Amino acid sequence: MVRRRQLYEGKAKILFEGPTPGLLVQYFKDDATAGNGTKKGVIAGKGVLNNRISEYLMTGIEELGIPTHFVKTLNMREQLVKEVEIIPLEVVVRNIAAGSLAKRFGLEEGTRLPRPLLEYYYKNDDLNDPLVSEEHILAFEWATSDELNDIYTYALRINDFLSGVFRGSGVLLVDFKLEFGRHYEEDEKRVILADEISPDNCRLWDMKTSEKLDKDRFRRDLGQVEQAYQEVAKRLGVLPEFGASDGTDTNRSENIS
């Protein structure tokens, strides 16, 4: 067992220093929040399930030739990831009207959009993550024009990949959020996918019944939240064999050499 220094704690994950410079250990918590932290709770086993789901999807994205921060899974709740400088943008890809988009434009939830819609939000909880344009991003130098081009291209390719994966599991990918970071290696800097991909940041509906299989069940007090996350993992073929809770200590990281 090796105890490592905690570097950052967010709403759903904790980052610890890794075994070597440039690598971090990402720990998945069971904590759940909504409304930028105004609603808080715990979804039992969520961290274990999100770890497995994100590993599976990140690996597939990497195989497409899109660089990610994922290196390998360490245990049921932890991953080894590359250290990145997070670009302060939440990139939302929408295929079907739901959530804030439906409210803003008076659309009925479930309305299929004529084409995938990309939206950018400034990543700042104190400002409630405001919707921003490319002009804002460039003017405030949150990202360069080249970085935005990479983000746009990657986001659409990831959408195609995820839509196909979930469709094969009988699930509609309604929308999802991505985060990107700058990865520095020697003299090279490039944009890579960071954070996670899971029911925490994807809206997922059953194709036949439109039943919600994501964190909207927590946001909207629909119940059976744990079961929805388990169902997604089951359909993707990554449901842990011995349950979704393992009692991993949040202050330790093992087998990370």
Rank of each mutant, 00 (worst) to 15 (best):
D175L: 06
G22M: 08
E141W: 04
K215I: 08
E9R: 13
I158M: 02
F70Q: 00
E186K: 15
A98R: 02
V165F: 05
R77M: 07
L57R: 00
T250Q: 10
L107C: 05
P67V: 04
S169T: 04
D126E: 15
R157Y: 06
S100A: 10
S163D: 10
F140C: 05
T68G: 12
Q26K: 15
V42F: 07
L148Y: 01
G237Q: 10
L23T: 14
L131D: 00
T73D: 05
S163A: 14
R5E: 12
E188Y: 08
G170Q: 02
F161P: 00
K40V: 12
C202G: 03
S145N: 13
V165W: 01
G10I: 03
P88Y: 10
K29N: 09
L23D: 06
T209G: 03
E186Y: 13
I256E: 14
K13G: 02
E109Q: 13
V238T: 11
L80D: 01
Q6G: 14
V132P: 00
L107D: 00
K39N: 07
Y120I: 02
R5F: 04
S133G: 11
Q79W: 06
V48N: 11
V225H: 02
G45A: 07
K189E: 15
F161R: 05
R182Q: 10
L193E: 00
F180K: 00
S100H: 10
L131V: 00
P240C: 03
D31C: 07
L172H: 14
D126T: 09
L204T: 09
R115S: 06
D195S: 11
Q224R: 09
L131P: 00
D175A: 09
D129C: 04
R52F: 14
G247M: 05
P19N: 14
A194M: 12
V91G: 11
K212Q: 13
D160F: 07
K72W: 06
R182W: 11
G35N: 11
E185H: 12
M1H: 13
S245N: 06
T209Y: 04
V132M: 02
F70R: 03
E109A: 07
D214Y: 02
E108S: 12
L173T: 01
K123H: 09
N36E: 15
E254S: 08
P88S: 12
E78P: 01
A194V: 12
N95I: 04
N75S: 12
V92I: 15
N251C: 11
K40D: 03
R94W: 05
Y152I: 13
L23W: 09
F16I: 01
A194W: 08
V132S: 03
F242T: 12
N255L: 13
E179V: 08
G35K: 08
S253Y: 07
M207L: 12
F16E: 01
V25W: 03
I158S: 01
G237C: 09
V2P: 07
A102G: 10
Q79G: 02
K39A: 08
V48Y: 03
V191L: 08
T248S: 07
F105H: 15
L239F: 14
A143S: 09
V165D: 01
Y184K: 14
N50L: 06
I43M: 01
H136L: 05
N50T: 07
D126F: 12
D129Y: 04
L213V: 04
E109P: 11
T144S: 15
I87N: 04
T38P: 01
R104L: 03
